[in-house]
């Protein structure tokens, strides 16, 4: 894929950051509003797709030197391990818990183990989607 259109590339550079912000926003808003791990991960992955469309693979790989297979594996591991964490505390597998903390400046903040679980989900989604796209485009180009 060698689309060298200056316009697309310049726009992508800006848009990617907007998409990334959106992804992170969606990830954290998932608890109380639409969003969550899946959508967050997918949006994040789609920013990579956009980058792949705008630049060629080598540039993207050089810019983000991450093995996305490992990211996916890490995500799946986090998901399973958070489940096991509950077992350590004598609860059933995958029991989630939450607590509201009063942190100065930020006010009341609810922290929940679901967030870690969702982080694992997001990482897996990102890892898998990017792995799929990358391996196909590597093969065809």
């Amino acid at each position: 894929m060698k689309i060298n259109e200056v316009l697309l590339q310049s726009v992508t550079k800006i848009i990617v950051f907007i998409i990334l912000t959106l992804a992170i926003y969606l990830f954290f808003s998932g608890h109380n509003n639409p969003g969550g791990g899946f959508v967050g991960g997918l949006v994040l992955a789609s920013s990579f797709v956009l980058m792949l469309l705008a630049f060629d693979i080598e540039t993207v790989k050089h810019g983000i030197p991450v093995d996305f297979k490992l990211v996916a594996a890490l995500g799946a591991a986090i998901v399973v391990i958070t489940g096991l964490g509950a077992v350590v505390f004598g609860e059933a597998f995958l029991t989630q818990t939450f607590r509201v903390f009063d942190i100065p400046v930020f006010g009341l903040i609810e922290l929940s183990t679901v967030t870690i679980f969702e982080l694992g989900v997001s990482l897996t989604v990102v890892g898998v989607v990017v792995t799929i796209i990358l391996s196909i485009s590597e093969d065809v180009s």
Partner: peptide, 20 residues
């Protein structure tokens, strides 16, 4: 359905690559 959508994507990708 949310679960199904994501799994469907994975399976569709797998099918596609298989066909390819």
């Amino acid at each position: 359905i949310l679960t199904s959508i994501v799994i469907n994507f994975a399976v569709a990708a797998f099918f596609l690559v298989l066909a390819y």
